[in-house]
Amino acid sequence: MLDVDPQNETLARRGFLPGRLARAMAFLPLYPLEFAAFRVLENTLSQHPGMLSRLGEHASKRFAIDPVDCPFGIILEPRESTPRLSVVPSLETCSWDARIAAPLLVLLGLLDGCYDGDALFFTRDLTIEGDTAAVLALRNAIEDAEIDPGEALGMPKLAAPFVTASLRTIATQLRTALGAPEELNGKTSGAP
């Protein structure tokens, strides 16, 4: 998160949002983002009930999702019947079981399956701390779910494919423009 240390050299800085944009985001209210993110969580869990089965005992863990280039963090608790999600200005004072940190576009790419988590970890584009088993369970549950961005956003069935394709195109262009790790398309690698 920005308030931790934007110059932190312990993380690779590939794919970071421009500093000015990130600083401007700090003036935006967090509630709309929290509302939208919670709806995505609810939709995803209802569309992919197998995720909770894969998470098993780790469904009740507190995951700190840390977009290191943004002025906010997310606390996620998948929990079987009552999922929770909160967007906070800083994760510093939050308790968590596992922390997953990477630039926002990289985290979204992981969610969408265009990155391999281990490869990002090897190159330091992704950092994890805390309960490693919980992180693996979450990663594997997401991997198997094949989350469709349009459907997760609650788009009508006819519109979802168009929204998904548009979002993926925009995300890919942004990643390219910001020097994020290369998406894996089966022909090339994300080598730094």
Binding site: A119, L184, G186
Partner: peptide
């Protein structure tokens, strides 16, 4: 233990 992106690329 690897993701689908790894799998698609290597396969």
């Amino acid at each position: 233990q690897r993701g689908k992106a790894y799998l698609a690329a290597t396969v």
